[in-house]
Amino acid sequence: MKSTSRYHSSMYNYILSGPELQRLFKRKTTKLFFLLIGILATFHATTHGLSLFTPQQLPHDQTADTFSNPGAQRAALNSPPQVGKVHACFGGCNPTYERALKSHEEHSERMGHPMFVLREKILSGLWSKPAYILSIILAELALPAEERLKWLLWNDADIVIMNPNIPLDVFIPPQPEFDYVNLLVTNDRNGLNNGVFLIRVNDWSVKLLSGIISYHFFRPQVELKYTEQSGMEEMIEDAYWRKSVVHVPQFWFNSYPVSVHREGKKDRRPYEYRLGGLQLHFASNRDGKRPERMNSIMDKLEADSSEFAMPLQDTWYESNITAFWNELSAKRAEKGITPPAEGAATNFFPVKNEDGSYGHVDALSEKDNSQEEMHAVTGAAGKSTSL
């Protein structure tokens, strides 16, 4: 990734700027040694498909050991990022997707979000997606708690940043009331669309993603129409996982283009893009013109993005998001629903059914049925949703 190369170049220039090290670098052998180290580090990051921090995100007191410790980089920042961005672009990724990816790089640089990009296939079909996210979460959990990212936002390759002024932290559920929420997803008319979703970095997510990856093996009788997406949908429909999943309005971060015959209308459907929105998902390609549509909007953004790139406070985000969580909280209180008890996400016991399939026993739910959260939320969401 280009941003990885820029990062290492920036670090190299920064080291050279130190007065004491400048004297040291007068020796040709020392220069050659550190240049070789920089090349090897850049090669390692590039071949692993991983892009970490850009020059603007580096604190001024960083030292060379940050090459091998991304967690330390974040901890040294005045305001460590809580959300990382995850993407995939491999197998002859076309120029249109690369161009869209560049818009995400620019957003990442501006907002300070670490960005991870998969450049090599891990599993067949689309199964590399949950596998790669799982690998990042495991790597984050191996860091000290204070150095970890808290959330990851997955983005499919056919998504373009429309407003780079929107920080991803705005989507994090309010604390501590919704600390039990581990996954934010959106639905379209076909059900779950996981082209974009926000997942917490914790052990619950490790189990969920592991289950998704292995779902077609343990439940071969279940048809997965949309492969890993259907696998996720099947998983989160289960009572155990559903307790920690919230379906949020699609237009928050997974909006679709407004159809031609509705462009002049002021009202917007739940799935349609709203001015000031973070990004636009070109999910459909029935007519084969997705690249054309994507390039058209990117041409427009590169020519003049002022219509779309408005400050966060000038958008509808803060008021709409606040209204959504307040309404959800009120609905929960009205139904007398209490948050899952601490540790609920670890009481998971897989069992083999008589037909050979695998299910589970959720010990906590069996002891306390009030933990079963099944209710509808409307209004701010613009669409009925279940939790």
Rank of each mutant, 00 (worst) to 15 (best):
L209M: 12
D203T: 11
F197A: 06
K207A: 14
K207E: 14
G195K: 03
R219H: 15
N187A: 01
V185D: 05
S214C: 09
K207F: 10
V185W: 02
F218D: 12
L192W: 08
G191Y: 13
F197K: 03
Y215L: 15
N193M: 00
V185F: 06
G195I: 02
G211S: 15
Y215T: 10
G211W: 11
I213E: 08
Y215H: 14
R219Q: 13
L198K: 03
N190Y: 13
R219E: 07
L209H: 09
I199R: 12
L184E: 08
T186K: 05
L198H: 07
R189Q: 13
G195Q: 05
Y215D: 13
V196T: 15
F217D: 15
F218S: 10
R200S: 08
N190D: 07
L209I: 10
L198T: 03
L209E: 09
I212Y: 02
V185N: 02
S214F: 10
I213P: 07
W204R: 00
S210W: 08
R219V: 07
S214V: 11
N194M: 04
D188H: 05
R189P: 04
S205V: 02
F218K: 08
L198N: 04
G191W: 13
S210Y: 10
R200T: 01
N193F: 00
G195V: 04
K207M: 14
N193S: 01
I213M: 07
R189D: 15
K207T: 15
N193H: 04
I199M: 14
G195C: 04
Y215F: 15
L183S: 10
I213S: 06
D188F: 03
V206Y: 01
L184G: 07
N187M: 00
N182W: 04
V206C: 12
S210A: 15
I199W: 07
D188T: 02
V206W: 00
R200G: 00
F217W: 11
T186F: 02
N193K: 02
K207W: 08
